Simulated scan of single mutants.
Amino acid sequence: MTVAINTEIKPFTAQAFHQGEFVEVSEASLKGQWSVVFFYPADFTFVCPTELGDIADHYSELQSMGVEVFSVSTDTHFTHKAWHDSSDTIGKIQYYMVGDQSGTITHNFGVMREGQGLADRATFIIDPQGIIQAVEVTAEGIGRNAADLLRKLKAAQYVAAHPGEVCPAKWQEGEATLAPSLDLVGKI
Rank of each mutant, 00 (worst) to 15 (best):
S71N: 02
T79H: 03
Q101A: 08
A82R: 02
G66F: 10
I90V: 12
P11G: 05
E68V: 11
E61I: 11
P11E: 11
G130C: 08
G110S: 11
I93P: 00
T45F: 09
T79K: 04
L30H: 11
E27S: 14
V36I: 15
G32Q: 15
E24Q: 15
V23M: 10
H80A: 07
D57K: 14
L118T: 07
D120Y: 08
W34A: 13
L150M: 06
H84S: 05
A122S: 15
T45P: 09
F78V: 08
Q63K: 15
I90D: 00
Q15H: 08
Q116S: 09
S71L: 04
H58N: 15
L118Y: 01
V135N: 01
E114V: 11
Q33I: 12
V36E: 09
F124N: 01
I125G: 01
E21H: 10
L149Q: 02
L149N: 01
A146S: 09
K31H: 12
W34F: 12
M65E: 12
G53S: 13
A134L: 06
K31F: 12
H58Q: 15
F22H: 14
F44A: 11
F38N: 13
K31T: 13
D54H: 14
H107Y: 07
G20D: 10
A28G: 12
A56L: 12
I9T: 05
A56T: 13
F44E: 13
A119C: 08
T13M: 08
T123H: 01
W83S: 02
G143I: 05
T89W: 02
D100K: 03
Y59A: 13
S87N: 05
F39D: 11
C48F: 11
H80R: 03
H80V: 05
P128F: 06
G130F: 01
M97C: 04
V36G: 06
D54P: 12
V72C: 06
D85N: 06
E27N: 15
L30A: 11
A16W: 02
Q33P: 09
A16K: 00
Y96M: 04
G53W: 10
F44V: 10
E24V: 14
W83P: 01
H77L: 04
I142K: 01
R121M: 08
G53H: 11
A119W: 01
A146V: 01
E21M: 10
H107C: 09
L52V: 13
E136I: 11
T123C: 08
D85P: 00
L118Q: 03
G110F: 06
S73T: 06
C48T: 13
P11S: 09
I93G: 00
G130Q: 06
M97L: 12
D120S: 11
I90Q: 00
I126R: 01
A28S: 14
G115A: 07
F17N: 04
A139W: 02
